[in-house]
């Protein structure tokens, strides 16, 4: 129960912060990304403010062996820079640079959707679905290949 309340509360703060910061205005986001136009540097302050808080607070938080309401932390301990990370970041960057929306603001804007959201959000969800589907298919195929290989050896 406590965890659910934390979910709602942190979501509220996050959503309010996104709207206040200007990240939910795609035109403003593109004004920041467009360095050849009339560059609007204000979104640097969003990232600076957010990362400033997390860099300092995470140091203290992660000194605790476990979070207050759970027995472990849930982030990946992967450190290897793999192809998926790089290609994923490139594709995401292209999409973000075209429209000015990243996933957080896209969901947040359900609070006051313009026509744009009805084009962007379903496409984004479809994109996530296609990637998961494709990844699951590939994994299945790998398992089949491995089994085939093992059979070859035996």
């Amino acid at each position: 129960m406590a965890k659910h309340i934390v979910g709602l509360l942190t979501g509220l703060i996050f959503g309010f912060g996104l709207a206040l910061s200007g990240m939910t205005q795609p035109e403003k986001v593109l004004g920041f990304l467009d360095m050849a136009g009339r560059w609007d540097p204000s979104l640097l302050f969003v990232l600076g403010g957010a990362v400033g808080v997390t860099v300092i607070s995470f140091r203290f938080i992660l000194r605790r062996k476990k979070p207050v309401l759970d027995s472990r932390y849930y982030f990946s301990d992967e450190t290897h820079i793999d192809r998926s990370l790089v290609i994923g970041a490139v594709l995401f960057g292209v999409g973000w640079g075209i429209g000015g929306y990243c996933p957080g603001p896209a969901v947040t804007l359900l609070a006051a959707p313009s026509w744009e959201l009805w084009a962007f959000l379903p496409a984004m969800l479809l994109g996530i679905f296609l990637q998961k589907f494709w990844a699951a298919r590939r994994e299945e195929k790998n398992v089949v290949d491995e089994v085939a290989e093992q059979n070859d050896c035996s």
Partner: peptide, 17 residues
């Protein structure tokens, strides 16, 4: 706005991991 986003992320990690 950025600071609020950071606080939200910190609370979520601290409380739920």
């Amino acid at each position: 706005g950025g600071v609020l986003i950071g606080i939200s992320a910190a609370l979520l990690l601290w409380l739920t991991g």
